[in-house]
Every structure is written in structure tokens, then in C-alpha cells.
Amino acid sequence: MEKILWELVQLVRQQSPLVHNITNYGVMNNTANALLAAGASPIMAHAKSEIKEMIAISHSVVINIGTLDEYWSESMIMAADTAHSTGKPWVLDPVGAGATSFRDEVLNRLLPYQPTVIRGNASEIIALAKANITVTKGVDSTAKSNEAIDAARSLAGQYEAIVCISGETDIILDHQQEIFIKNGHPLMTKVTGLGCSATALIGAFIGIAENKVLAVAAAMAVIGIAGELAAEESNGPGSLQVNLTDKLYSITEQEFSSRLKIERL
């Protein structure tokens, strides 16, 4: 599988997919830079008057509810509706799901437009599936990724989506298969928005790949491995952020293949 995943990394570099992001203020710059470093082209646009035209020229759409407000939420609904009706793949990042009734309301309006991929931490996935565990801690997870597998399976079945649970082990699943990726480094949790960057990278990969599950796996693998490599030459979260961007840009097949820790069920 490692060869297929690396080919997808290369395909993003070659095709430079255009990714339309409606994402949060706190990560917008980092997200755009991560996409550029990986070879994709970011658009960061939320004005309702141009959403349909932007999506028409984009390969995929990323919706991240991190810094939610009333105007942006309507833009997100419009973008999800447009992506769904035109067959464009789109990713939902349910940041802080379960934290407030406003977030849950917006998510309940977005989900019927059947996101291609839902990516969140374990607590967000559990809250989104309205499982028994409903405690979240803002954008940080209070649960481990393996505790959210049942919730993820429920979401995948209900919305015909690929679900990616990020954590110490990243779990990617749909109704047919489950993939476990054990790459990354603990220092990555000290940099804001790396999960959001992963979501954006997923958007780039699903924009050009036929096999969407493997596209998600490739995106999560490349950012996890880049994080490992970056951590080895970083003194803290500040330098990690810079070094990780560099590694997304310069990562080699040998680095990718030798580091990849993946299991498929």
C-alpha cells in the first residue's frame, strides 16, 4: 500500500489541485501554507456572493467550523449544498462538536449534504454521532481515537461518508474497510491547527484521487511522517511548525516509505 500512497503524494504535487477552504481565522495562514507545501493550491474565500463560482473552479471543498459565526455558517451551508449538488468532494471538520448548541445546530444542517470525508478528533466524532459520551474540551479530545470507532461507523453508515478519527493512531474507515496509521509525534499537539491542516490536505488528496479512502490515508500519513521528521530537528512547537511545512515540501519517497506505519482491515 505504501507505493500507492506515495503515488498519491506525487499526484498532488503534479496536479496542484485547487482547494476551496471556508476555515477558521486561527489556522487560515497555516492551512494555506500546508497546502502550498504539499503541492496544492489554496483558496480561502467565504463570501456568499462568490461561493458557487469558487466551487465550480475548485477540485474540492473544505469546511472547518472552528471560528463559527452567523455569516460564515450560512456560507458553509451554501458551500456544502453546492458541493453536494455538483458532485464535488468535500471535507467537514466539526471543530468543537458538542461544545455549544450553535455548533451542533450548524453541524446538523451540514451533515445532510453528505460530506465525502468527516475528520475530527475522537471527542468530536463521538459528539457528532450523538453517542453516549458527549463531553468535549473545545478543540482538544478527551477521548482516544479507538473509543470513537463505533461512533465513526455510525456516521459512515448514516451519511455514506469516509470518517477519519485523528489521534495517536489515526483511524480511517468507511462501510467496507478500516485503516490504522500510527505516525506523528506528541509535539504536534502543541501547535495549533495541525488537525485543521490535515483536513485541508485531505481536501487536496480527495480532489485528485479516485480512491477516496486511500486519498485520506495518504494525506494523514504524509502529515504524520512530516511531523515525525520535523520533530527530530525542532526545539519546540515554534520550530516544529516551520520545519513541518518544510518537510511537507521536501519529503522523499525513502523517508515516506521507511517511516510509514499502517495497517488495513
Score class of each variant (00 low, 15 high):
residue 244 L to F: 03
residue 253 E to H: 09
residue 256 F to M: 07
residue 221 A to H: 04
residue 236 G to A: 02
residue 260 L to D: 03
residue 255 E to F: 00
residue 227 G to D: 08
residue 260 L to T: 00
residue 214 L to M: 08
residue 233 E to M: 14
residue 200 A to D: 06
residue 245 T to R: 04
residue 238 G to H: 08
residue 262 I to M: 10
residue 209 A to E: 04
residue 235 N to R: 07
residue 218 A to P: 02
residue 253 E to G: 02
residue 211 N to P: 00
residue 215 A to I: 07
residue 195 G to V: 13
residue 238 G to L: 13
residue 190 K to M: 08
residue 236 G to E: 09
residue 194 L to Q: 03
residue 245 T to L: 15
residue 252 T to N: 02
residue 243 N to W: 05
residue 190 K to I: 02
residue 230 A to K: 12
residue 189 T to H: 02
residue 224 G to K: 05
residue 255 E to G: 00
residue 255 E to L: 00
residue 256 F to Q: 04
residue 217 A to F: 01
residue 235 N to C: 02
residue 231 A to S: 14
residue 208 I to D: 03
residue 217 A to Q: 04
residue 195 G to P: 11
residue 219 A to F: 11
residue 258 S to T: 12
residue 243 N to M: 10
residue 239 S to H: 04
residue 216 V to Q: 13
residue 224 G to Q: 07
residue 197 S to G: 02
residue 257 S to E: 10
residue 226 A to V: 04
residue 219 A to H: 14
residue 191 V to G: 11
residue 193 G to W: 10
residue 220 M to W: 00
residue 223 I to F: 05
residue 233 E to A: 09
residue 225 I to P: 01
residue 239 S to G: 00
residue 242 V to T: 11
residue 211 N to D: 14
residue 191 V to E: 02
residue 233 E to P: 02
residue 228 E to M: 10
residue 205 F to E: 04
residue 241 Q to C: 08
residue 227 G to V: 06
residue 205 F to R: 14
residue 241 Q to G: 09
residue 261 K to C: 00
residue 241 Q to I: 09
residue 243 N to R: 05
residue 234 S to V: 11
residue 221 A to S: 15
residue 224 G to Y: 05
residue 238 G to P: 02
residue 246 D to F: 11
residue 195 G to L: 15
residue 197 S to N: 10
residue 259 R to Y: 14
residue 217 A to S: 12
residue 209 A to I: 11
residue 201 L to M: 09
residue 222 V to F: 05
residue 212 K to V: 12
residue 245 T to E: 07
residue 199 T to N: 15
residue 211 N to Y: 02
residue 196 C to V: 14
residue 205 F to P: 10
residue 240 L to K: 06
residue 230 A to D: 05
residue 194 L to S: 10
residue 230 A to H: 09
